[in-house]
Design a protein around this nucleic acid. Structure first.
Length: 110
DNA sequence: TGAGTGACTGTAA
DNA sequence: CTTACAGCCACTC
């Protein structure tokens, strides 16, 4: 039986809620699900995400496309972000704070 | 059961 | 400003 790891499920749930043209950080998602210390696992979970979650909208704390190498293509992640109206330069999102989207904290509280 | 690893973060120099 | 180190949790082998 495919046990549903609550941790992963929460990550997918929050990632799917990221609005268009917005971006967030692994740490922000981790905290929203009550696992602030597991920011690394958030990215790990996205890699295993069985859904089409917009993982390209998830960047590190500095707004850098740390996981762009994990995407198919070479600059697909950057292309997707630019396609949403964002400006990416040198794997870094410009005005990251301005486009930053903070996930709902109620994800960790039923 | 135990050891290794990572799409991170924060603090220090 | 950049570079370096340690802590951290969940997962896989």
């Amino acid at each position: 039986m495919p046990k549903e790891s609550n941790f992963y499920e929460r990550v997918y749930a929050v990632t799917r809620q990221i609005p268009y043209g917005r971006v967030t950080s692994y740490g922000a998602i981790a905290r929203s699900i009550g696992a602030a210390k597991s920011a690394r696992m958030v990215g790990y979970a996205l890699g295993n995400s069985p859904y089409d979650v917009p993982a390209h909208r998830v960047l590190n704390r500095h707004g850098v496309l740390t996981g762009k190498h994990h995407f198919p293509g070479t600059n697909l992640m950057q292309q997707l972000l630019e396609n949403e109206g964002l400006v990416v330069i040198d794997n870094q999102v410009q005005d990251f704070e301005k486009h930053f989207w903070e996930p709902p904290t109620n994800q960790g509280d039923s």
